[in-house]
């Protein structure tokens, strides 16, 4: 009797886990299914779930639009630049803020993180128009700094605060400059933190939509903007649209699968210490 009760409770638990996880899995599987079927099967009702036979035609169609590769390249350039620049300035800043215990600077970074990205667009848009930079990738990279810099600084503050101070103090006593103590002692120790900051900054920059949506010209669209335009302006059919959507989000999903531990650490450290 007791055994049965335990068995039942385990079964109930299994079912509830399945219910929690299945919406996540099913949406991505449906996306994959749509991208591998022809138009006839995609618009069938009742729906056809398993592509039979699967076809790569939708992917061929996406790549046949030669601008897709251009937009992919734009996305790569923007995300790598925005992440690289944010690391170059954000890692030392996180160190400085952690060392000075500059709570006001930290609060400023926090405010920048919680305000909507859209609210920075109007003044920056006017500025770029005035500087005649619209139509290049420069404004898009700069606006992405609005997202990447606060992430990097925030994650790095919490990592540097967690490091023991003794090692750097020993280095300072031995005659190292502050810069050397940072560069050769603190930074190598904070490498896991830098990895976390890099991954998060890259993902949020890659996923960003609204900045490029407003600032990009015909040639400077990033992938999220290009894919949205396929839906609204080009009215292309479901198969290629799903294929394109999957291609856009695939790098991020793969990165999440590979670096799950770092992402979780970064989001919870930033989050819990954050607010």
């Amino acid at each position: 009797m007791r055994k049965l009760k335990r068995y039942l409770s385990n079964a109930a638990f299994g079912v509830s886990v399945l219910l929690l996880v299945s919406p996540a899995a099913l949406v991505f599987l449906w996306m994959l299914s749509l991208s591998l079927k022809n138009e006839l099967d995609n618009t069938a009702f009742p729906p056809i779930f398993v592509p039979d036979p699967p076809t790569l035609d939708n992917y061929r169609e996406v790549f046949a639009r030669n601008d897709f590769l251009l937009f992919a390249w734009n996305s790569v350039v923007v995300s790598f630049s925005a992440t690289g620049l944010a690391l170059a300035i954000g890692v030392p800043a996180g160190y400085g803020i952690a060392k000075m215990k500059a709570m006001r600077a930290a609060a400023l970074i926090l405010i920048a993180r919680i305000t909507p990205g859209l609210s920075y667009l109007i003044p920056l848009f006017l500025l770029f128009q005035w500087l005649e930079l619209t139509g290049t990738l420069v404004p898009i990279v700069i606006t992405h700094l609005v997202i990447t810099v606060p992430i990097v600084v925030w994650v790095m503050i919490s990592f540097f605060e967690g490091l023991p101070a003794e090692l750097e103090e020993a280095a300072l006593v031995d005659g190292a400059t502050i810069w050397q103590a940072f560069r050769y002692v603190a930074m190598p120790l904070a490498r896991p933190g830098i990895t976390v900051a890099t991954i998060l900054a890259f993902i949020f920059s890659w996923n960003n939509f609204v900045f490029a949506m407003v600032l990009a010209g015909r040639e400077t669209r990033t992938l999220p903007v290009a894919v949205n335009n396929m839906l609204t302006f080009e009215q292309i059919s479901w198969g290629p649209l799903s294929a394109a959507a999957l291609l856009v989000t695939a790098p991020v999903l793969i990165l999440t699968l590979l670096a799950q531990k770092q992402i979780v650490a970064g989001l919870t450290a930033g989050g819990v210490k954050g607010a």
Partner: peptide, 11 residues
């Protein structure tokens, strides 16, 4: 982590 625009299209 998924790109919001991409999943919005599927929805």
């Amino acid at each position: 982590m998924a790109t919001p625009v991409a999943v919005a299209l599927v929805w």
